[in-house]
Design a protein around this nucleic acid. Sequence first.
DNA 1: TTATCATTTGAGTATCTGTTCAGGAGTTCG
DNA 2: CGAACTCCTGAACAGATACTCAAATGATAA
Lengths: 126, 126
Amino acid sequence: MEVVAGLDACVTVEPDEARVAATRDRLVTPSEAARLADLFRLLGDQTRAQLLYALLEAGELCVCDLAETVEVSDTAVSHALRLLRTAGIVANRRSGRMIYYRLADAHVRMLLDLSREHLRHEIVEG
Amino acid sequence: MEVVAGLDACVTVEPDEARVAATRDRLVTPSEAARLADLFRLLGDQTRAQLLYALLEAGELCVCDLAETVEVSDTAVSHALRLLRTAGIVANRRSGRMIYYRLADAHVRMLLDLSREHLRHEIVEG
DNA sequence: TTATCATTTGAGTATCTGTTCAGGAGTTCG
DNA sequence: CGAACTCCTGAACAGATACTCAAATGATAA
């Protein structure tokens, strides 16, 4: 504890330098956090969320049915699905003129389930 | 099946009107989806995500330690924490001049755990 | 082929969002 | 009291984002 001196903020009371370092070690790296944030951001839009929960219930739906279910324009749905598809969250299958979408990631399915629980038990505290 | 007529799109091939209706019934309502999206959106930012994972590991940290851990300005951290606090995702406690933050929602803690799993098993398919 | 349907794409736009900067509020210590 | 410190707040700005509109693609049916 010699070279510690005054690196920057919080040094007066000899803060949790050790704790900060330890936390940073076990912590997800910044790039990992960025990827996780990317995932959450995709779920963080009402339209996309509704689409995903619809797929969670129905299993598979075509774009026009999704648009009708969520009450958004076909174009908006298509734009939303493209983002989800690029991220590997949904996958599609063509059948004639229609294209059917489905959830494509087990963990995302769990996130959707779990978050729905969160909503139903809103009052709970941790 | 008489009054069905031509409501709008997808009516030529007699689409899954029934499926759409059934899905919409069991589905989360638009306002529920909006609240869920709000939750995910809060997790969908790199800074906030890093803060939350740091709290998940450390249990409790003051603002300046969080800023140091995440390598972001105190002000940015404070803004981020305000959003999380307002949403009930984190809670704080004052001790002298410092304010210690902690996770305040069990479901969010589970979401963070689960998503971290998702990252580690990235290759998995659903 | 042409017409129609389901979906996609790209441009344009208005809105939202996260950061920085400057200043304020609350706490501790001399 | 005033100085130093931790944290919060509000304004302002740059960048991201989600929609609409117009046009294109791919597939089916006449």
